[in-house]
Design a protein around this nucleic acid. Structure first.
Lengths: 368, 368
DNA sequence: TCCCGAAGTTCGATTTAAATG
DNA sequence: GCATTTAAATCGAACTTCGGG
C-alpha cells in the first residue's frame, strides 16, 4: 500500500514541464516582451489595448504560468526575502512575536526565511552569513537574551540592510529596535502589590548582565521611593547567568528556598520573569505556603504558561505580537525607503508599553 | 544620535558594489569559466593545477565574492529552499518540532521558508501556493490539527515535491508522515494509573473529528480489557471541536466541573492532552480537590508548560524534536533521491514511540 | 576523459531602444 | 508624432564544446 503503483495521471506524469513566459507568448501570439509588460502591469501597459492584455492573461492562466522567481530576482535585484533570526524558538516568549511578524508579512509579497541561533554566537554568525548570501532584503532579530557584540551589528549597518532588533534594550546602538518599557512594567508590578497592601516584598532580580534587569530594578526603586517603601536587602536575590530559558525556572525554585532559609517574613514576591515566578510557585507549594493565601506572586512577560498555571499568574504583559508586527512593518518600510533613496537610514528605537494582567496569584496579604 | 552623521567608512559607503564572478576572473587573471569550475569544485577542477585554484580562491576571498543564488538557481534549477508550514506557531507542541527541523537543516545547505497557516484552510492554500511559486524543493507540514482535505495533498504528490506531514494519523494517505503511536501512548498512561492502584478513572477524550482521539481511546480500551478494568461511561466525557489550542484548557475546566456535578467517585483523571489536563487541575483546585492527594491527573504530549506547572504534570511524551529532525532528514533524502531518478517516490509512514514521564500529578489513591 | 583554459550558449525573466503602420 | 509591438541586451552563474600544449 505504501509505495504501490501509481495508476492515474496519464500524460503529465513525472516532472512538471515548467511553462515559461515564452510559452505564454507563443500561446497568445504576442512577443515575450508584451507578455512581460502586461503580466507585470508595467508602465508601458497603458498603451496596450485591453483586448491584447486579456488574451495574454488568459493564455497565462490556461497554461498555468508561474513566473520564475530566480530569473526575476536576477534582474530586479530584489529577493522578496526577509530574514528572521530567533535566538531560541524554545522560549515561549518568542512564539507570539513570530506570529506577529508573520501576520504583517502575510499581507506583503515578502517571504520569511527562518533561522534559530540557539543563543550561540557561532550559529548566529553562520546563519547571518547564510541570510546575507541569500540576499535577504531585511532582517528581524528576536533576541530573548543578548550576547551580540556591537561589531556584528555595525557590520549589518555597513551592508546597508534594514534591520530591527526585538528584545533587550541595548542602550545607544546603531541598529533599530523594538523594546519594552521595562521600567514602566516593573513600576506597575510593584505598584499592584503595594496597592493590595503588601509592604514586605521579596524580589528575585534577573541576571546582572541582562540589561532588562537594571531597568526593571530602576522601575521598582522609582515606585518604592515615591511611596517611601523600604526594600529589605535580605529579600533581594539575583538570578544566575544563563541563556537557557528553563534555568530561570530552576533559579526561581532555588532562590525561594534560599529566601525561606533566611527566615525573613515576606507577604509577596516579585519575580524577574514568569519562568522565575512559576519556579517560585513550585518552591512555595513544596514548602506548604499557599499562593496567594500566604504569599502573593507576580511575574513578568505573560508568556503562555502564565495563564494556564494554577493559580493563574498575575504578571506584566509584553505586547509580544504587536512587537513582532511592528518590527516587520518597520523593516518593510525601510526597504521601501531604501528603494527610493539609497544610503544609510536613520535608526529608530520604539518603546512599547507593558500592561498589568491580574490573575489569581496576587491578593491582599492576610493579617497576621 | 539616532540618525547622526556617519563618519567612518570612507570609500565603500552606501551600497555594496556586488562583486561578480567576472570580477574574480579579472582579478585572478583567469576566465570566468575557470573561476566557476574551481569555486564549485566541479569535476573538471581535477585537471586544474593547485596554483591556479589557489590564486582564484584568493582573489575571490580578497574581493569578498559571494555567488548570486538567483543566477545559480536559474541554471541549476535547484532553489535550496525547504518550505515549512506550521498550523499554529502558538501551540507549544509545535515549537520543539521546529527546533528539530532546524537542527537537521542547519547541517545541510538548505534554508527554511517559514509559514503559519493559523489553522485556516484559506491561509494554508495561499501559503502553499507561495511556497510552490518560490520553487521550494520540499515541504514539511507541522499539523497539530487536521482540516486538510485529501485533494490538496494529492495535488502535492502530483507536483512531485517531497512532502512529509508531522502530526495526526490520517489513515491511508498518499503523503509521507511522521506520527506518534497514540495507541501505545494511551496504553502506557492508563497502565501507569492502574499500576498505582487506581480503579475509578475518569476520562476526557478529544474531539471526535480528530483521528488521535480514536487511537488513544483504542489504547485505553486495550489496556482496560487486558486487565478486566471496567470503564464507567458516566466518567467519560468528550472535548468539543475547536482548532484553538487554548480551547482544550477551557474544555478541561468545564468538563471537570461537569464531572464533579455528576457526583460519581473517581480517584484519577486521564486527559486527552496536557492543555486539557492543566485545565482539569485548575478546576480541581478550585473545587478544593488536591492533586495528586485526592485525585491523580495524567496528560498527553508533554508540552513545555507540563513540566513547569505545579504540581508537575505526569504525561506521555511525544518525542517532538526527534519527529521534526526525522521529517527534515526524510525530506532531504527524498530530494536527493529525486535528483537521481525522477518520478513519484514511495510514501513512507513513520510511527514514533511515546514515553511515560512521571512527575508529581500522579500518586497512589488514598484509601477511603 | 592527457592537461589546461576559454569562448559561447543557456537558464527565464526585465527593460531599453527601436520598428511598424 | 502616436499607438502598438518587438528585437536585443542584460542580470550572474553553470555547462558544453572546443583549441592548444
Amino acid at each position: 500500500m505504501a509505495s504501490g503503483t501509481q495508476q492515474s495521471d496519464t500524460s503529465q506524469s513525472s516532472k512538471t514541464p515548467t511553462v515559461t513566459m515564452r510559452d505564454v507568448a507563443r500561446e497568445s501570439g504576442f512577443s515575450p516582451t508584451t507578455v512581460s509588460i502586461t503580466l507585470n502591469d508595467a508602465p508601458l501597459a497603458r498603451y496596450l489595448p485591453a483586448e491584447t492584455k486579456a488574451r495574454i492573461k488568459q493564455a497565462a492562466r490556461k497554461l498555468g504560468y508561474r513566473p520564475n522567481p530566480f530569473a526575476r530576482s536576477l534582474v530586479s535585484k530584489r529577493s522578496q526575502l526577509i530574514g528572521v533570526m530567533v535566538f531560541d524558538i524554545t522560549d515561549p516568549w518568542c512564539t507570539p512575536i513570530l506570529r506577529g511578524i508573520e501576520k504583517t508579512l502575510y499581507e506583503s509579497s515578502y517571504v520569511t526565511i527562518f533561522t534559530d541561533s540557539h543563543n550561540d554566537p557561532t550559529r548566529f554568525e553562520r546563519y547571518l552569513e547564510m541570510l546575507l548570501d541569500r540576499r535577504v532584503e531585511a532582517l528581524v532579530i528576536v533576541a530573548n537574551w543578548l550576547f551580540l557584540d556591537i561589531n556584528v551589528l555595525a557590520d549589518l549597518r555597513k551592508r546597508d540592510i534594514p534591520t530591527v532588533l526585538i528584545g533587550p534594550e541595548l542602550g545607544i546602538s546603531s541598529i533599530s529596535s523594538v523594546v519594552l518599557d521595562n521600567e514602566a512594567g516593573a513600576y506597575k508590578a510593584i505598584q499592584h502589590l503595594y496597592e493590595l497592601g503588601h509592604r514586605d516584598i521579596a524580589f528575585i532580580r534577573g541576571p546582572e548582565l541582562l540589561s532588562d534587569t537594571a531597568s526593571r530594578w530602576t522601575g521598582i526603586r522609582a515606585f518604592a521611593d515615591s511611596v517611601g517603601l523600604a526594600i529589605d536587602p535580605d529579600l533581594v536575590l539575583d538570578l544566575a547567568e544563563s541563556a537557557d530559558p528553563m534555568s530561570s525556572f530552576d533559579g526561581g525554585i532555588a532562590l525561594v528556598e534560599e529566601l525561606l532559609r533566611r527566615g525573613k517574613r515576606f507577604t509577596a514576591l516579585m519575580a524577574f520573569d514568569d519562568m522565575t515566578a512559576l519556579g517560585a510557585m513550585r518552591a512555595l507549594a513544596h514548602a506548604g505556603i499557599s499562593v496567594p493565601g500566604q504569599c502573593s506572586v507576580i511575574g513578568f512577560d505573560d508568556i503562555g504558561p502564565a495563564s494556564i498555571a494554577t493559580p493563574g499568574l498575575t504578571t506584566i504583559r509584553q505586547p509580544t505580537e504587536q512587537m513582532g508586527s511592528f518590527a516587520a512593518a518597520r523593516v518593510i518600510e525601510e526597504v521601501h525607503a531604501a528603494h527610493k533613496s539609497p544610503g544609510p537610514k536613520p535608526v529608530h528605537h520604539h518603546k512599547v508599553n507593558p500592561e498589568l494582567i491580574v490573575r489569581e496569584s496576587t491578593a491582599p496579604p492576610t493579617p497576621v
